[in-house]
């Protein structure tokens, strides 16, 4: 098989206050895959995600293990390239949007990559179009609805042309229409996706493969339908399907 886009081995991490969140995570994701990372609250999902582009790591506290993105190890000296390859959409769009206008915010990443002028405009335009937010380019992000802000957050990351798109709970706090629109956007994308969620129908709709992170380790890995259908496994890790939802049926 080819080099995995994401290759994580034996990842441990304790926050500076001593809370250990990761207890030895192993995960491989190959090019073009869409993988759902499931797990209860506090399982360590966000902690794990923040390691993928070196925002958290041994230097910020204690931890070991290795992460490679398309063969490149995440290290201090590779961070700039790693952060171009890994695009993370944070759980809270308000953490992600900090520039005065939508356009400036989407341009922030590519501008840091050194793009200027027409090239930069093209990147920004393309990213906004992919999420259907072109009409809002000159609005301040904090004046948009929550769903719109999340879409802009996705655009800020797409504008970097990442090799792997990581979404941390993309459907949380969205109303049903925004939730569906975001799913359509993600389904259209032609990149490798790791989607953190506890929205199980969403995982089933968008991802062929699911892994469960619980207690800081990966405890299950398989086709989404099979993982969701394993009632015992699901119950053991506090994952509950919505009432009336049957993963065996096509939805």
């Amino acid at each position: 098989m080819s080099t995995p886009v994401l290759d994580v081995r034996g990842l441990t991490y304790a926050y500076p206050d001593g809370t250990q969140a990761l207890w030895g995570v192993d995960l491989h994701v190959h090019r073009g895959e869409r993988v759902a990372l499931l797990g209860p609250n506090g399982a360590g999902k966000t902690t794990f995600v923040l390691h993928l582009n070196g925002v958290l790591g041994p230097s910020s506290a204690q931890g070991e293990g290795r992460i490679e993105i398309s063969g490149m190890p995440v290290r201090r000296d590779t961070l700039a390239e790693i952060r171009r390859r890994v695009g993370i959409v944070f759980q809270d769009p308000d953490d992600q949007l900090f520039m005065p206008t939508v356009r400036d915010d989407v341009a922030f990443g590519p501008a840091n990559l050194g793009l200027r002028g027409a090239q930069l405009d093209e990147r920004v335009g393309e990213a906004l179009e992919r999420v259907g937010m072109t009409a809002y380019a000159s609005r301040p992000p904090h004046h948009l609805s929550f769903g719109q802000r999340r879409r802009v957050a996705v655009a800020t990351v797409l504008a970097m042309r990442p090799e792997i798109l990581v979404l941390d709970e993309p459907s949380s706090n969205l109303d049903p229409a925004s939730r569906r629109e975001l799913a359509e956007i993600v389904a259209e994308l032609d990149v490798t996706v790791l989607m953190v969620t506890h929205d199980l129908p969403y995982a089933l709709q968008l991802c062929e493969r699911s892994v469960i992170l619980s207690g800081g380790v990966i405890v299950a890995d398989g086709p989404t339908r099979a993982v969701l259908a394993d009632g015992e496994l699901m119950a053991a890790h506090r994952l509950e399907l919505p009432f009336g939802f049957d993963p065996a049926r096509r939805h």
Binding site: L50, N53, V55, A80, R83, R84, V86, G87, I88, F90, D92, D95, Q96, F98, D104, A107, F108, G109, A111, N112, L113, L120, T156, V157, M160
Partner: peptide, 19 residues
């Protein structure tokens, strides 16, 4: 810190790019 992490994630190195 989370905002700052988001900035770092998008290649921020200490000064805002002049757009």
């Amino acid at each position: 810190e989370r905002v700052h992490l988001a900035m770092l994630s998008r290649g921020y190195t200490g000064s805002l790019p002049t757009l």
